[in-house]
Structures are given as structure tokens and as C-alpha cells.
């Protein structure tokens, strides 16, 4: 499982990074989304993999922390999901507005002239 998940994180990160370095704004936005999946999964995996033990506690009584998934990475990732949605929206709007102003969807605001 660990191997599959880390390979998956790597593939998502590589696809995202490749798109990040591409010249069209849409490629960059897709790249950022893929990269954010990779990063979220990466952070999430730092809490190790637990199957069938969500961090929902019994009401009172003794709690054995080892029996549950680590809640910290989950809380961090929950925040990250919402924030990455917000930044994606912002980037999308900047992308649209820049396209309207410059007439091109190149990341530099102008086609590379050569």
C-alpha cells in the first residue's frame, strides 16, 4: 500500500510539475490542481496509513491514540483543500482577466517572439 500510494504521489507531483513549467495558463492551472492533490496526499500520508479507524472517539472513557488515525494531518489537509480551492479560483480569474487584457493565454502575457 505504501509503495502504491507513494508512487501515486510521485506521478501526481511529476505531472503537476511538468504542467507548471508549460507556457499556457490553462496548463499551469491544471498543474497546480494536480500538484495540490499530490501535496495533500503527501501531508496526509505523514500520519501513516490506517484502515478502518477514523478519528471519531467514543463518548468518554479511555482512549488509546494508537488505535485511531492521526487527526493532525487530516485537519491540516482539510484546511489545505479549501484554501487550494480559493487560490485556484483566484488564479482562474487572473488568467481570464489577463487573457482579456493581453489577448493571449501565454503565461508571460505575450507570445514568445522568435
Amino acid at each position: 500500500m505504501e509503495f502504491v500510494l507513494s508512487a501515486a504521489i510521485g506521478i501526481l507531483a511529476a505531472s503537476g510539475a511538468w504542467l507548471l513549467m508549460r507556457p499556457r495558463t490553462f496548463q499551469v492551472i491544471v498543474g497546480l490542481c494536480l500538484l495540490s492533490y499530490a501535496v495533500n496526499l503527501f501531508i496526509f500520508s505523514m500520519g501513516r496509513l490506517t484502515v478502518g479507524a477514523p478519528a471519531v472517539m467514543p463518548r468518554g472513557g479511555f482512549v488509546n491514540p494508537d488505535a485511531y488515525a492521526d487527526p493532525i494531518p487530516q485537519a491540516l489537509v482539510l484546511t489545505a483543500i479549501v484554501i487550494s480551492f480559493a487560490t485556484t479560483a483566484l488564479f482562474l480569474v487572473v488568467m481570464i482577466a489577463a487573457r482579456g487584457f493581453s489577448g493571449t493565454d501565454h503565461v508571460d502575457g505575450q507570445e514568445r517572439n522568435r
Binding site: E2, S6, F42, G47
Partner: peptide, 26 residues
Amino acid sequence: IAVVFGATVSIIAFVVMTRPQLSTVG
């Protein structure tokens, strides 16, 4: 570059996931 990037991220994730977890504030 992207493949190297993915590979390093992947290796770090794998290395961390296969180590026992220390007790955290969690």
C-alpha cells in the same frame, strides 16, 4: 526535471511512511 521531482517526492513519502510513527501532539 518533472520526473526527478516526482521521484524525490515519492521516495520521501515512502521513506516516511515506512518508519514507525513517533507520538505526536495528535
